[in-house]
Simulated scan of single mutants.
Amino acid sequence: MSAATTTEPATTGRTPQLPPAARKARRRSAALGVVAWIVGLAFCLPALWMVLTSLHSEADAATNPPSLAASLTLDGYRQFFGGGGGPTPWPPLINSLSASLFSTVLVLVLALPAAYALSIRRVRKWTDVMFFFLSTKMLPVVAGLLPVYLFAKNAGMLDNIWLLVILYTSMNLPIAVWMMQSFLADVPVSIIEAAQVDGARLPTVLARVVAPVAGPGIAATALICFIFSWNELLFARVLTGVVAQTAPVYLTGFVTSQGLFLAQLCAASVIVSLPVLAAGYAAQDKLVQGLSLGAVK
Rank of each mutant, 00 (worst) to 15 (best):
T5D: 12
T6Q: 13
A10D: 10
T11I: 14
T12D: 14
R14I: 12
R14L: 13
T15Y: 09
L18Y: 10
A22C: 11
A31K: 14
G33T: 09
F43E: 09
L45R: 11
P46K: 12
W49P: 06
L55W: 01
H56G: 07
D60T: 12
A61C: 08
P65Y: 02
P65A: 07
P66I: 00
S67F: 10
T73P: 04
L74Y: 11
D75M: 13
Y77T: 04
R78N: 09
Q79E: 15
Q79T: 14
F80C: 00
P89Y: 07
P89F: 05
P92W: 01
L93A: 12
L93D: 03
N95D: 08
N95T: 06
S103V: 06
S103H: 00
V105R: 01
V107L: 01
V107A: 03
V109N: 10
L110K: 04
L118S: 01
R121S: 10
K125S: 15
D128R: 15
D128Q: 13
M130R: 13
L134C: 08
S135I: 13
L139M: 15
P140D: 05
V142D: 09
L145W: 06
Y149S: 05
L150P: 08
F151C: 14
N154E: 15
N154S: 15
A155N: 14
A155R: 14
G156H: 09
N160W: 08
N160P: 04
L167G: 08
Y168W: 06
M171K: 06
L173P: 01
P174K: 03
I175G: 04
A176T: 06
Q181S: 14
S182C: 10
F183L: 11
D186W: 09
E193W: 02
A194K: 08
A194M: 08
A195Q: 06
Q196I: 08
V197K: 00
D198Q: 02
G199I: 01
L202C: 02
L202R: 09
P203I: 06
L206V: 05
A207N: 10
R208N: 07
V210H: 04
A211Q: 05
A211Y: 04
A211M: 07
A214V: 03
A214F: 05
P216Q: 00
I218Q: 06
A220T: 02
T221D: 02
F228W: 10
W230K: 03
E232Y: 03
F235G: 04
A244E: 06
A244T: 06
T246M: 05
V249C: 02
V249Q: 01
Y250M: 13
G253W: 01
S257A: 15
G259Y: 02
F261G: 03
A263M: 00
V270R: 03
I271K: 05
I271H: 00
S273H: 07
L274R: 02
A279C: 12
G280H: 04
A283I: 13
G290M: 00
L293I: 14
A295V: 10
